[in-house]
Amino acid sequence: MTRVLVCGATGGIGAACLAAAGDRGVGVDRDTVDITAPGGAEKAVGYATSRLGGLDGVVHAIGMSGRSLGDGPVGACTDEAWASVQRVNLESVFRLLRAALPALARTGGGSVVVVGSALAHTLDDDFLTAAYAVSKSGVETLVRLAAYEGARHGVRVNAVAPGLVDTPMAGRALGDPPLRARLPELMPLGGRACTPDEVAAAVVWLLGPDSARVTGAVVPVDGGWTLR
């Protein structure tokens, strides 16, 4: 794998991406460099570039659920949930892309991969979370904008869109027996949640040379969720 910065490296998917990168990867999280804060993304990119002697790839694997803050249907979503989820899930993508695009362009190009969500494309009574869904839809628009801007400089920008992934963030859903019983319906390919390693495998492909002509894409890693 190329020299990679992984943001959100202590989360389930981010940790799997960092493990795949091995000694060619540098990870940051909110306890080391908070990219949701002003200047944080630039600091993370500079740190990784210094540690690795250059930078070829960037992964954004930071995300939050706003359920505990009151995220839910549009008519019930709280201001706190809306603001917090947009800051973490969407604004941090903007900040990282703003820092990464010129940095990668200066060194001849590279690849950025953002972790989105299948919930940007589907509606379901058990998963009506307005703030989360809108944040992940916005991520896809940012990815397309950045891919368009970066292409002329050899910078590719793509996203992966997982369904339920077996991480602590999905603990509410996966720990709920009725929801767990729906997995064969929701994710018919295998009838189970994805593992972090399965999502990381798609991220690695998008970072590497086998996807050299792919940019602006959203790759579903959802076990068929968005086919319904």
Rank of each mutant, 00 (worst) to 15 (best):
G46T: 12
G108N: 12
P38M: 11
N89G: 12
L123N: 01
F94G: 03
L119Q: 06
D34L: 14
G109L: 10
A103E: 00
G150C: 04
D56T: 09
L97I: 10
A100H: 05
R152E: 14
D126V: 02
A151R: 06
L104C: 06
D31A: 15
S111P: 06
R156W: 00
E91C: 07
L145K: 00
A41E: 05
M64N: 06
G154C: 11
A100R: 06
D126L: 05
L101W: 06
G154F: 05
A118H: 04
V58G: 05
A83Y: 11
L101F: 11
N89H: 09
A61Y: 02
G109R: 05
F94W: 11
G72K: 03
K43A: 15
S84K: 10
V114Y: 01
E42Q: 15
R98D: 11
T78S: 15
A61N: 03
S137W: 13
V112K: 00
G63E: 01
V33P: 01
L55N: 04
A48G: 11
V134Y: 03
T36W: 12
Q86W: 12
T129K: 08
A41V: 03
D126C: 02
T49H: 10
G138Q: 04
V58A: 05
S65D: 13
P38C: 11
R87S: 15
S117D: 09
R51C: 14
V74M: 13
K43C: 14
V74E: 01
A131C: 06
G75N: 05
T122H: 07
E91N: 12
S135R: 03
V134T: 15
R144Q: 10
A133M: 10
K136V: 00
R152Q: 14
L52V: 05
D79S: 11
G154P: 07
T49W: 01
D56L: 08
L104A: 04
L101E: 07
R152N: 07
A120M: 04
L97Y: 04
M64H: 06
F94Q: 03
A151G: 10
A133S: 13
S137K: 13
V155I: 09
G154N: 07
A133E: 01
A105L: 09
G72M: 03
T107E: 13
A83Q: 14
L101K: 04
L55V: 06
Y148Q: 08
D124G: 11
S92Q: 09
V74T: 14
A76D: 13
A99L: 08
V58P: 02
G109P: 08
H153A: 14
L96S: 11
L90M: 14
Y132L: 03
L104G: 02
T107K: 09
G70L: 10
G46P: 07
D71R: 08
L52M: 08
N89D: 09
L52D: 05
Y132H: 10
V88P: 05
C77A: 15
G40E: 09
S137I: 08
S137E: 13
R144H: 06
L119M: 13
V58T: 09
W82Y: 12
H153I: 05
R144V: 06
K136N: 04
Y148P: 00
V59L: 14
V58E: 01
S117L: 10
D31P: 09
L128E: 15
Y132K: 01
E42L: 09
L101T: 12
S65E: 10
Y132C: 02
